[in-house]
Amino acid sequence: MVSEEKRKDILERLRKGVVEFDEDMVREAAKEALEVGMDALDAIMNGLVAGMEEVGELFDKGEYFVPEVLMCADALYAGLDILRPHVKKEDIKVTGQVVIGVVEGDVHDIGKNLVKMMFEVAGFEVVDLGKDVPLEKFVEESLNTNADIVALSAMMTTTMLGIPKVIEMIRKKNPNVKIMVGGAPVSKDAAEKWGADAWAPDATNAVNEAINMIKGLKKEIMERKED
């Protein structure tokens, strides 16, 4: 068993390595975590993910900008690559599966990529359809992947109008999947009007909303079973 002091030291280096986008620091700390027999999931959640949450806050506060966040993400992934294979099978509980993309005609994908990253950090399995995605593709992929959530992003007011179309198509073909929408021009009111299940103003809130939805989804399934 690793001493509490050592554990704290490693977690701190993982966290700091992510926040300061120091891939080497993260790699070394991750290797050491394994060497001293630390629980890999503990290292991920309380080291790497804690660091990334801090990065999200720094971004929201305007202290970090997009390049910084992308590099923090690289540091996080460097650690994940080392630690993930050692997470005990019974500990792997995928929070849910998300299909995400930017709607057709829209190439603004900086925001979507941040949302995607926060989903991955939170333990979601993410299928990224990229940007400028034909509307039908969201429906197809949501069916192919058996996703829990489809997340739609739009950054322009015209391309945004693709969102209600996707929602309508998905509801017809895949009524159980939850739909989350976002992007600068998409207001909470619009999201409600279109019948989306969730909306969020930024990446951090997107994940919180998603987790709530998944909980709701599981509850719905349980209740349906009881009926």
């Binding site: 390049p67 910084e68 992308l70 994908d109």
Partner: peptide, 9 residues
Amino acid sequence: LEKLLKMSF
């Protein structure tokens, strides 16, 4: 773009 942003750093 991501490559550009990261490389800028």
